[in-house]
Design a protein around this nucleic acid. Structure first.
Length: 724
DNA sequence: AATTCCTGTCATCGG
DNA sequence: GGCCGATGACAGGAA
């Protein structure tokens, strides 16, 4: 839940930034072709707000705990870095207004075709009975077409309701079992949210058809699809609402459970899925596959990147380019120079406008050395990137190879090979990740909380629940692992049931119960069998029908438990203990002592009773301990996969940035050539590139200097630059 | 017969 | 100091 909040907050922040950017562009586009200064100011605000300093201070203050490998903090670290780089990219390159269109398409597909994640995860139905999307669900809830209507709808269409109920039942049962297991409060809350969705979903299923359509959505008479009305604009609230819905669905582990997936695979109409795939945005379609929120945001940002890069490719405005020679100072190229380059844009533009034709640039050069620039604007490199190599190729002072392409080492094949390999590994590992996605999502995206963030069936939760339960009441069969009682008459059927439902997720971790849960999902009466982890509740009586499942683990377990339970039971019988081992083990200590005082037990009897209690409790503790250990291992495994994905994504992002940088370099080079070729001396002759070169001052001015006079500051430049 | 896996049990530690 | 849960270590049984 914590990570969910984190992602939600982060997502909202990003989305707000997006909207603000879009708004800025819309406002300025109408009257300002060269809107850089105001846009830059606006962008610099959030950009500066994401400076490293603040980032660190935030890291230090928000959560308070150290950077554990599986800490949310670490996640936040990567995410914040990504945000920072994205913001820099936004500063450097504009966000096209088509961004809004993407969201509109998203919503339209959402409304008309059915949500991919909804359809894939929950709905086994065909195209005629498409479940409403989550946003539409929300709309419905807000427009009183939710529960109130669905009661009527449920009576009128009880049949379909029954059918839906049947299909929902396994999931509900799973959910309830998790509650029974003592899922933590956080799990309760998060699941409660899903449950809300399920309720609404159910209600709308009970009330299918046009009346379930949210306001603003018409039902196509031919296709039966919901056609959104008035989609030309989406309010911020709607967008945020949609975003919120998306997050809820994205984080819904139930919606990606294998059983529901199997339901989809077997019953859903592929045409519907195709439609959904075709219309939904990649952001949504990702939720169809159980990617984590991190990836979804990455994909969203990738969309931005693609658009931004396209925009960058098409733009010819050289004002976006920095021509600062100080960038020649260093050779290595990394992301920060991009920011510096972008920052320099605003400095460059006005100064170029005010550039006097007859002004001598040399003093400026002498007064503004590159170190000043670096210290002032944070330029550390970009050195030869922005300088034409061919001009320097004839000069002995600057090696062409040096200036040629400092990116060469970075943009070499090695990096891209690495990226490709990472991508490949990512692709290959994904199916496995999908297989274990449920667990990953249960642990939330940031995943890896060892003990502080247990899965719903984590021992801490169940133990806490059991301990509180046992201490607060005398119903000692809550936890279920209460066996030891061979007195079958004392074991009530419901107790058996509870015991059978004990630790439903244990099957994921224990080989002994490696039955595929999906096999029993459609058979409610086998639900408990599918999650049978009763160490102690296997009835001793042979007349008890054997469990329909078989397998080495269960047989062994059953026999072993029979033996163990029988041992203590026999001892208890031999010692004529007047109450059941179940009570001995599971009663709270006060009631247990009370029980002991009620009966006049001998010393040997008391000793045996205490031994039985100690062994029984320790046995449950050992079971929980082992389960927790397995949980930890699985969580670590998931975290490793997640970090690999993160690394792959960041490598990809880095490659994109470097490619963008290369494009910028090429454009600047072309610009340099163009400017230089148009320069004429007093006699109207062009300057020789072998003898002259353009240099850039810290204030954005461009000066023409003789090459052999470079570094000498007492020479007048032949001519100043021209504005581009 | 050796190995592996599962489970119970004991001892110990810490809350 | 006792209770209780967690956990490492060990043992025993089954496959």
């Amino acid at each position: 839940m914590l990570s969910l909040k984190k992602y939600l907050t982060e997502g909202l922040i990003q989305f707000t930034i997006l909207l603000s950017l879009m708004g800025v562009r819309v406002d300025l586009d109408s009257y300002l072709p060269s809107h850089l200064p105001p846009l830059h100011e606006i962008i610099l605000g959030p950009t500066s707000a994401y400076t490293q300093t603040q980032f660190h201070s935030l890291r230090g203050t928000t959560d308070g705990y150290g950077v554990h490998p599986k800490s949310v903090d670490l996640d936040q670290f990567f995410t914040s870095r990504r945000l920072l780089s994205r913001m820099r990219a936004l500063d450097r390159l504009q966000v096209p207004s088509t961004e809004l269109d993407a969201w509109l398409v998203h919503r339209e597909a959402d409304s008309s075709v059915s949500s991919a994640q909804t359809g894939s995860s929950r709905s086994p139905e065909g195209p005629q009975d498409l479940p409403p999307t989550d946003s539409s669900l929300r709309d419905n809830r807000e427009t009183e077409q939710g529960r109130g209507t669905d009661e009527l709808g449920a009576t009128a269409q009880s049949e379909s309701s029954e059918l839906n109920k049947e299909e929902i039942d396994p999931i509900d049962i799973l959910w309830l079992q998790d509650i029974d297991l003592g899922a933590g409060r956080e799990d309760f809350e998060s699941r409660g949210r899903h449950k809300d969705n399920e309720d609404i979903w159910e209600s709308l299923h009970d009330d299918p058809g046009s009346e379930a359509a949210p306001p603003g959505v018409q039902v196509d008479g031919e296709t039966g699809e919901n056609v959104p009305q008035g989609q030309t604009a989406m309010s911020l609230a709607e967008c945020l609402s949609l975003l919120d819905d998306t997050f809820q669905f994205a984080n819904s582990s139930e919606f990606t459970s294998p059983d529901s997936q199997s339901i989809l695979d077997t019953e859903s109409d592929p045409v519907t899925l195709d439609q959904a795939d075709g219309l939904l945005s990649p952001f949504l379609s990702d939720m169809e596959s159980p990617l984590d929120l991190e990836e979804q945001w990455q994909d969203l940002m990738s969309i931005m990147d693609m658009q931004v890069l396209c925009f960058s490719d098409t733009t010819e405005d050289p004002l976006y380019l920095s021509l600062d020679p100080s960038m020649q100072q260093n050779g290595n190229l990394e992301a920060p120079p991009l920011q510096g380059c972008a920052q320099n844009v605003t400095l460059f533009t006005p100064s170029m406008e005010a550039f006097p034709v007859s002004e001598s640039p040399l003093p400026q050069l002498s007064s503004h050395n590159s170190s000043d620039i670096n210290s002032t604007f944070g330029f550390t490199n970009l050195t030869g990137i922005l300088f034409p190599s061919q001009l320097n190729s004839t000069s002995n002072e600057t090696s062409s190879s040096d200036v040629q392409d400092p990116l060469g080492g970075i943009l070499g094949d090695a990096l891209f090979d690495e990226i490709s390999l990472m991508d490949l590994a990512f692709e290959e590992g994904f199916s496995q990740m999908q297989a274990s996605q449920l667990q990953e999502e249960l642990d939330s995206d940031s995943g890896l909380s060892l003990d502080s963030h247990q899965s719903p069936a984590s021992p801490s939760g169940s133990e806490t629940s059991s301990s509180t339960c046992s201490s607060s009441s005398s119903s000692f069969s809550e936890e279920g692992a209460v066996g030891y009682s061979s007195d079958s008459e004392l074991v009530e059927p419901e107790e058996v049931e509870e015991a059978s439902g004990y630790q439903p997720e244990y099957s994921k971790f224990c080989r002994m119960s490696s039955q595929d849960p999906s096999r029993f999902n459609r058979l409610p009466f086998l639900e408990h069998v599918g999650h049978n982890h009763t160490y102690n509740m296997i009835p001793e009586e042979p007349e008890e029908p054997p469990l329909p499942i078989s397998g080495r683990g269960n047989r062994r377990q059953g026999a072993f438990l029979d033996r163990q339970a029988g041992r203590d039971e026999q001892r208890a019988r031999a010692m004529k203990i007047p109450f059941s081992n179940e009570k001995i083990i599971n009663l709270p200590v006060e009631e247990f002592n009370e029980l002991l005082t009620k009966y006049q037990l001998s010393e040997a009897q008391l000793c045996l009773v205490r031994d039985i209690r100690r062994r029984g409790k320790n046995k449950m503790a050992a079971q929980n301990c082992r389960k927790r250990k397995l949980d930890t291992i699985l969580n670590l495994e998931q975290e490793v996969k997640r970090l690999n994905r993160e690394r792959s994504s960041q490598l990809r992002e880095k490659g994109e940035n470097l490619r963008s940088l290369q494009r910028m370099k090429q454009e600047v080079e072309n610009l340099y050539q163009e400017v230089f070729s148009q320069l004429r001396d007093q006699e109207g002759r062009p300057y020789s590139p072998q003898r002259y070169a353009l240099h850039y001052t810290s204030n954005g001015n461009v000066v023409l200097m003789p090459r052999n006079a470079e570094g000498q500051q007492n020479r007048r430049p032949e001519r100043k630059d021209r504005r581009k």
